[in-house]
């Protein structure tokens, strides 16, 4: 593993939201592309905001969006200007410091979760997600992984679905029928 040899400067990740990351005076891998995307994005928004109502009236629904998008474009352009002047951070690479493999894998899991949630339903999708991610991250035994996954999923289900009646997508499991059956059981017993 080359990863262990590489020294990752974690101060650049930022410690909290009040102290965001970033390398002072250096340009991190991908930073330039990110800034350019922001500039383009702001320009598109400004154009879209102009399209809402043009310069029709001070009170038009497009007034504040247009002002906001203009501020975004100006500030993003200023950031781009600063970024271009900064030297590259030679000690960092994209795959080691910005998006290490683990982040990519977990991000892909999240995308898969989003895709499967509706057709498969909340319970199976979440279980798969927990099993896969805990197994990969902890590298512990399957027994541990399954116990922790099932246990915490049940807890979340109990709080959100039963107590707070949040109706997550049911997908392939006929949850409503099962719950009604359980209710009937209690009602019959009482």
């Amino acid at each position: 593993m080359t990863e262990s040899e590489h020294h990752h400067d974690s101060s650049r990740d930022g410690s909290s939201d009040a102290t965001p990351g970033g390398a002072a005076g250096k340009r991190r891998p991908g930073e330039l592309v990110f800034t350019i995307i922001l500039v383009i994005f702001s320009a598109v928004l400004l154009w879209n905001a102009y399209g809402i109502a043009g310069f029709e009236a001070l009170s038009s629904p497009g007034a504040i969006p247009m002002g906001t998008a203009a501020v975004m474009l100006i500030s993003a352009a200023m950031v781009l200007n600063q970024t271009l002047r900064k030297p590259r951070a030679e000690d960092e690479t994209m795959l080691q410091d910005i998006v290490p493999p683990l982040v990519i894998v977990l991000a892909l899991f999240l995308v898969a979760y989003g895709v499967l949630l509706e057709p498969l339903g909340f319970l199976p999708t979440s279980l798969l997600f927990l099993l896969a991610s805990i197994k990969i991250l902890s590298k512990r035994s399957w027994g541990f992984t399954i116990t922790v996954s099932v246990g915490s999923l049940l807890g979340i289900y109990l709080v959100f679905r039963i107590v707070f009646t949040v109706l997550m997508p049911t997908g392939i499991i006929p949850e409503a029928e099962i719950l009604q059956a359980i209710r009937n059981l209690f009602a019959g017993g009482a």
């Binding site: 057709p119 392939i172 006929p174 409503a176 719950l179 009604q180």
Partner: peptide, 23 residues
Amino acid sequence: IGAVSALAVSATAAFAADYPSKE
């Protein structure tokens, strides 16, 4: 997936006699 969900549905198809059979 389709087949399984179809099964689940047909098993509990709404008959007014036992409506409501779920929440």
